[in-house]
Amino acid sequence: MVMLFRYNNLVRELVNKSSNEHGIIEMSLVNEVLSGLRECKPTGHRDILKAYLFEIRKTLRKQLVEVEFGCQPNESLISSLKSKLDTITSHSLDLQVSKNDQLIAGYRVRLVDDVFEDSIQSRLSKLSQSLTS
């Protein structure tokens, strides 16, 4: 992993080339970057690809928001949540909504590595921790 840091600037440029004008990564642009790399065969091709994959994953994670609800959410709630998150992050996000029975009730939103949660499960776990500590 340490070795891949030397390609940081190049990889960031490649990720920029893989994104459209809204900053969203597109499959066609990624293909263009990959074919370009294949043609010029730079030194450390494999390491560049590894670093590119790492950076693309990181960027994709920033664009994807995992939303879990304890019960089935309605459309208006989802759209209101999306607009709020778009405003906070100042770019368009892709919401992946799912139902998680383990939450019992409430919600859990994962945005990159931040988790916003208010569910019965989290409260019970907090209660359990406070009783055992």
């Binding site: 994962r110 590595d113 931040d114 988790v115 916003f116």
Partner: peptide, 25 residues
């Protein structure tokens, strides 16, 4: 009030040391 936590995922685990992806804060 919802709680905000910073999370990450274990990528490697060896000899009592874990390398975690995420945990940016």
């Amino acid at each position: 009030d919802s709680t905000r936590t910073n999370v990450g995922t274990i990528t490697t685990l060896a000899d009592g040391v874990a390398r975690v992806d995420g945990l940016s804060k």
